[in-house]
């Protein structure tokens, strides 16, 4: 992926910034500027908390090019607390320990490296919740 394309996706990738629909209040991730619920404009940025649970998952043992370092690795559909389903790699977990309903939290990690002299691409992954925060 070219440098400008990666750069444009930074806010959603680094910190899970989506959008909220001004009309019906639906939370959108990834941001797409039009609400999929009511088809009205949705430009307001919304910061997701990064908490959710595994809705479904699979384990990739034949990695995509650029992801060989993590093989085999789990990829999950994560149901965010605020509603949206996000596809993401799971990290800091052994594939056999992943289960549907597992509470997870967002972390920012290396997604891939574009060769030894190219860009290091960072973005969200999810891992088992380390410790529930007491005072938020």
């Amino acid at each position: 992926m070219a440098i400008p394309q990666n750069w444009r996706l930074q806010n959603q990738r680094y910190r899970l910034t989506g959008e909220v629909c001004n009309t019906c209040g639906a939370k959108l991730f990834p941001p797409r500027d039009v609400c999929p619920e009511c088809a009205k404009p949705a430009y307001e940025p919304f910061q997701f908390a990064g908490k959710g649970e595994v809705y479904s998952f699979t384990v990739l043992s034949e990695a995509l090019a650029g992801y060989e370092a993590y093989e085999p690795y789990p990829v999950a559909l994560v149901k965010l607390q605020e509603g949206p389903l996000v596809t993401a790699q799971l990290t800091d977990v052994d594939p056999q320990d992943v289960h549907i309903g597992m509470p997870v939290e967002m972390v920012t990690r290396k997604l891939t490296e574009e060769g030894e002299d190219g860009l290091i691409v960072y973005g969200y992954k999810f891992r088992p919740v380390l410790k529930p925060a007491v005072n938020g």
Partner: peptide, 20 residues
């Protein structure tokens, strides 16, 4: 560090904890 970690990702998580 895991294969997807480096000084930047370590710094980000520590910084988020400090912000909280």
């Amino acid at each position: 560090p895991g294969p997807d970690e480096d000084a930047a990702t370590i710094a980000i998580e520590a910084a988020r904890n400090a912000l909280s």
